[in-house]
Computed example of a mutant assay.
Amino acid sequence: MATNEVISLNDPHAPTAKAIEAFSVVQKELKSEIIKSRHHWDKHEPKMWSRAEGISDHDLVNFEFEKDLVEIRSAIVSYGTIVLGKIRLPAVNDAEGEGFVHVRIHDPPNRGTEDVRFHSIWTDEGNHDADGRPTTWRAIQTKDTALEFFNE
């Protein structure tokens, strides 16, 4: 299993045509997972997706990889390539600025992009209190939030 300690991500950079193609393979599932995550967290901790309050599910996931996948990082692992992507959510633009989700996909070796798999969306349970309980929740990141490895 990949961990931040054992992988070596390349530097953040603009997406290549291959990365756009890889994300396009999982587009339907990715959009569905964003909506599922939002609905799940709205039941348990509405702060997680609070920047999308008042935005319909349809509008929330109305993004296109060709223009809204703004940054990627990747790392080769023994079972393929891990690719992280920063995707702009055009419907989210509030006092904090534009909104982005950080997504992780996996591209197994030796088959092109047809077997690319969605892995996860970063839902940050940030700061913690003295008892270890989270005090901040954020699924929609800011432009300045670094695209770092996550294992959710």
Rank of each mutant, 00 (worst) to 15 (best):
H128V: 15
E64N: 12
E66V: 09
V77E: 14
Y79D: 14
L30K: 01
N62D: 10
L69Q: 02
V26H: 02
S24D: 12
I82G: 03
K86A: 05
I121Q: 08
K43V: 00
R51H: 02
D59K: 13
R51W: 03
K31S: 01
L84G: 06
I87L: 03
E114A: 09
R104K: 15
I55W: 01
L84P: 01
K86E: 02
H39Y: 07
D68W: 01
P109Q: 12
H128C: 14
G80Y: 12
A22F: 04
E53F: 07
H119C: 10
V103P: 07
Q27P: 00
R51N: 07
S50N: 10
V116Y: 03
E98H: 11
S50T: 06
T123F: 01
A130V: 10
K43T: 04
V77P: 05
A130C: 00
I55D: 02
M48C: 11
H58M: 07
V103S: 02
H44W: 09
T123P: 00
D68H: 08
I76S: 15
I34P: 04
E125D: 08
S56W: 02
K47G: 00
D68F: 01
G80K: 08
E98L: 12
S32K: 13
V61H: 01
K36W: 09
V92K: 07
F23C: 01
H128T: 15
G80C: 11
K43N: 04
V77C: 14
G126S: 08
P109G: 13
S32G: 12
H106L: 14
G54E: 01
R117G: 15
K47E: 06
R38I: 06
F63L: 06
S24M: 04
H106T: 09
H106V: 09
F118R: 13
F118Y: 15
P109A: 14
N110Y: 08
H39I: 15
Y79H: 13
R38G: 04
R104L: 12
V116K: 05
I87Q: 01
L69A: 04
E33Q: 15
Y79A: 14
L60E: 08
V116T: 13
K86P: 07
A95R: 13
H102W: 08
F100K: 05
A52L: 08
E71M: 09
V103A: 05
S32Q: 15
L60F: 07
D59C: 04
K67Q: 13
A91P: 09
V103D: 06
S50H: 11
A75D: 09
P109W: 14
V103E: 03
T81P: 02
S50F: 06
I105Q: 09
F100W: 04
V70W: 03
L89G: 09
H106N: 10
S120Q: 06
R88Q: 12
L30G: 01
E33G: 05
P46Y: 01
R88P: 02
V103L: 04
R88V: 11
V92L: 04
G85M: 09
D42K: 10
D68C: 03
P90S: 03
D115V: 11
L89Y: 03
H39T: 15
V26E: 02
G126C: 08
F65P: 10
H102G: 07
